[in-house]
Design a protein around this nucleic acid. Structure first.
Lengths: 221, 221
DNA sequence: TCGGCATGCGACCGCGCAGTCATATGACCG
DNA sequence: CGGTCATATGACTGCGCGGTCGCATGCCGA
């Protein structure tokens, strides 16, 4: 946890630090990310940084477990759990894509956090975030099964993980391919981000959900 | 490309270098991976290393574009393109999982190569490898559509990317969850790898393909 | 025997890093 | 005013890195 001093900081100074920290941890792996660089960019002497956080990991942990989830919740809001299951899933997927274009720096931070070669604690952080996401999908599928939208014979744990792969990695891949760019570039170019407006997102979400729903088999014809 | 000297090296010395290079690039990001460490472990002076390769990137590029694909092809062999589409897909998925447990160091190397924060050329290497994989899946789906196994209305490009996400990230995630371990640990423990024998792999592959085939909708009941 | 050439080798350079520490500053209190 | 306490600061330490360089070694043909 940050030290008390951090929370007593003038908002402007604190924000500068947080902004540059997100930028650095989005641009590089945890191990490669440089405190010196963050401090330099935020115009905060390195000595001062250590008044605010124990060390690099302390800052990273706070970002991933506190600050980013706060911002994500603020963006995503709540999902209407009572709506039709497939409608809800489409919305979730569309909102996920919206997050990608509206907060590319956070999306990139999350992507960088997936580094499988990171030290144990960082992998643990990432895993617990992923598991929370999978649990949410699992809960959604569970409701879907109870309301009869989903086949009764589904293995929910397995399905949740596959759906997670689809709407996580799969859709990111598709979005980036649609835009013909890397996450990297999407972050840098507002023009690129504007190309993925609500209508296009809705279309992609509908296509993806249709595939999840009906599969690839020709019997669906 | 490696220098000629590298190919003239005594096999034992060359193998030691390659083995330790794979180990290092599997354990750390490209940027974090240390030539000094590779050289130390392989008992090859750093000065000698530069007789064999131009630099770190030269070694990495050769590993990813030459050595690893060679080993992968040797393991996977050819797919029987004439068999029933769904049978082929199941086989592909099962072989993919087998590769994970039989060559965890290469699987880990590939996972580490996915680092989205790497320098441009490394991202390019990874992307071209991924694109080749997606193209293969696309070709498979195309045959499936022509033989009538797949719905005619499918968007093949999109489907290929989603299927890729499922049988790549998704299945890896599921396998690791089944084993209750990280790729990291699977590499280290033969006992763990033995837990994912052919029968269990076949069962998982069948489940995954069933989901891809029929989707989650209850109308499949 | 000798000379030249491919190769082996490890000390060395300059760099940037995480983290520390001694000192400076300035607000508040009695 | 003097003293105390939270905070600010940047020079510094020790480290490992990628890459270089100059010298050592040993093989091969003349």
């Amino acid at each position: 946890m940050p030290k008390d001093t951090f929370f007593r900081l003038p908002a402007e100074r604190r924000d500068r630090l947080v902004r540059e920290a997100i930028r650095e941890f989005a641009d590089r792996t945890y191990a490669e990310a440089s405190l010196s660089q963050i401090a330099r960019r935020a115009s905060i002497p390195k000595g001062s940084f250590y008044q605010y956080f124990e060390d690099k990991l302390d800052l990273y942990r706070w970002l991933l477990t506190d600050e980013v989830p706060r911002r994500k919740r603020a963006f995503l809001g709540d999902v209407d759990a009572d709506a039709d299951f497939w409608r809800v899933l489409e919305t979730v997927v569309e909102r996920g894509m919206a997050f990608l274009v509206e907060h590319p720096e956070l999306a990139r931070l999350a992507a960088a956090a997936a580094d499988p070669t990171a030290i144990a604690e960082v992998r643990g952080l990432h895993r617990s975030i992923c598991d929370a996401g999978i649990a949410e999908i699992g809960a959604l599928l569970d409701r879907g099964q109870k309301t009869g939208a989903l086949s009764k014979s589904l293995d929910l744990a397995l399905s949740a993980r596959l759906v997670n792969a689809i709407i996580g990695r799969g859709l990111t891949d598709i979005v980036l391919h649609e835009l013909g760019a890397e996450l990297h570039e999407v972050l840098a170019s507002e023009a690129l981000r504007k190309k993925l407006g609500p209508k296009r997102r809705a279309r992609l979400a509908a296509q993806a959900v249709a595939l999840i729903r009906g599969g690839l088999d020709s019997s669906a014809d």
